[in-house]
């Protein structure tokens, strides 16, 4: 299902990530997943958090460039072949994946991905009877 991911622009300098996490921590926001994409000058921090709207406000108040991005979350057994299956479904439809990351909980893994066409991707994944995670379920993990 569609999940709102928190995306934050970060300059590549020490202490910035800490400040983001401290800001979220001050309001007891939980983080389900986190990943950082970086270049030599800047990075983008991507997080699945318990209250995305509130998290966005908190960071905005502290002058971060922040946005909510729609991503897809899927639950599957934590074996490579299931991750491969997801990607194959999308590539067969010529849908490109802008980025993806995953984490596992016990025997299960959660795959987060951002796709060039979210609607079409969701439909295809549903047709293949993949277990699409609702936001409310994801935040509880």
């Amino acid at each position: 299902m569609i999940v709102h991911q928190l995306s934050v622009f970060l300059e590549n300098k020490s202490g910035r990530l800490t400040e983001v996490l401290e800001a979220l921590g001050s309001e007891r926001i939980k983080i389900t997943a986190l990943s950082v994409a970086d270049t030599s000058e800047f990075g983008i921090l991507r997080m699945i958090v318990s209250d995305p709207a509130k998290a966005k406000e908190l960071l905005k108040e502290r002058s971060f460039t922040v946005n909510l991005t729609e991503v897809i979350s899927i639950m599957a057994p934590n074996e490579a072949k299931y991750y491969a299956k997801v990607l194959r479904i999308l590539s067969d439809l010529d849908l490109s994946i802008e980025y993806t990351y995953a984490f596992s909980v016990g025997e299960k893994s959660v795959i987060i991905l951002r796709c060039s066409n979210t609607e079409e991707a969701l439909k295809a994944l549903k047709d293949h009877e993949l277990d699409l995670l609702k936001a409310s379920d994801l935040y509880k993990l």
Binding site: Q5, S7, F9, I44, T65, V66, N67, R114
Partner: peptide
């Protein structure tokens, strides 16, 4: 400065 209105979370877009 990166402007919030324009910021999406793609590295390629920023580059």
């Amino acid at each position: 400065e990166v402007d919030e209105e324009f910021f999406q979370d793609k590295i390629s877009q920023l580059q």
